[in-house]
Design a protein around this nucleic acid. Structure first.
Lengths: 196, 196
DNA sequence: GTCTATACCCTGATAGAC
DNA sequence: GTCTATCAGGGTATAGAC
């Protein structure tokens, strides 16, 4: 496991990230983290201040990766519509859900400001970034002049987060794709040719 | 607690429903259920076959209530747009999230077909019901003729589910309302007067 | 840095008295 | 129907040897 990660510390963070993604904070135990990282009890408490400290490191790292992945598409080439579409249709492990958004449903993450902060910042950044792209599209005459970039961006980010819920409920990625398709169709009036 | 509920059995189900809503299946213990219901250990195991059986009863009941609440709006008076808008803007305890959709993020619910089934059926029913309303709106010329009712309905249900994520991440209902406003604006072209 | 030992409470469940 | 007793194991953490 994690054979490429030489540091015990890095393996612990990687294991924690996976478990938080799969089971949330409430459902993740230090014991499970140690088992997945191949590290002992003493080793874990030497490197981190318990489950909470480990979660802080893990959440920070996941937040960072989400931004990089989003920026790769939203800062890429193409029209505003193509960038938005690229983000919505980017490859995702749909049935696993969002490693960051998932944490917002965990009662102990939401109750802890230090753990909630990176979640809030990341989703806030994503909405803002998307709003910027949409605003540019409006300025370019690509979208309807009356479109509110902030509200539209929030709706699109919500479609993605809610798409995961629909997909997991039906144990199939199809529901996610249907929701995204519906959102993109509403976002028009980009002509089908532009949509390529 | 639950003073109106005379049956121990009913109090146990009510307590389980609340805890599943707040903490999910993974985060809910029989002990916590008993404490909230004001019931003893033996009492709980007399009425139900453990945590799993209790969860089955609780999820079924929550699913039923969600349908009733949705039907009250979607089957109510008004144009298709008004019905959809009524559903999206219906009063919600936004920071608590969706009592049914929330379960789709729980690893043990998703891994258990008996527990996942009511979640899938309820969200599926909701998408279908909303698609019916939208389809009627298209037939009435209220919405664009090219609108795909199923995909649009899925997108709107996803906006609600994802809106909860955004709201909880920022510890404020505002993000939910922004996302819903963005979605309704995209859904137009109902004129503002019609939107009343 | 990593290990084992230990602590103390919680979890999910069963047994049997009342 | 409800109670208390009990159980084997897990959750989270500390102590101290190596």
């Amino acid at each position: 496991m994690y054979s490429r990660l030489v540091n015990t510390s890095e393996r612990l963070v990687a294991a924690t990230r996976e478990l938080l993604w799969e089971r949330g904070y409430v459902g993740t135990s230090p014991r499970a983290i140690q088992a997945r990282a191949g590290a002992g009890q003493g080793s874990m408490y030497h490197h981190f201040a318990g489950k909470h400290g480990l979660a802080l490191a893990a959440v920070g790292r996941s937040a960072e990766e989400l931004r990089e992945a989003a920026e790769a598409v939203l800062g890429g080439p193409g029209t505003a519509y193509q960038q938005v579409r690229g983000y919505l249709l980017r490859e995702r492990d749909v049935l696993r859900g969002c490693p960051v958004g998932r944490l917002a449903m965990d009662p102990e993450i939401v109750a802890d400001d230090a753990l909630r902060a990176p979640v809030e910042e990341t989703l806030g950044w994503l909405c803002d970034r998307l709003a910027g792209v949409i605003g540019q599209g409006v300025a370019d005459g690509e979208f309807d002049r009356g479109l509110d970039p902030e509200a539209t961006a929030a709706a699109l980010v919500a479609v993605v987060q809610g798409g995961y819920v629909l997909a997991r409920a039906s144990a199939s990625p199809a529901a996610f794709e249907t929701a995204v398709r519906g959102a993109l169709a509403l976002l028009g009036p980009a002509a089908p040719e532009t949509a390529r």
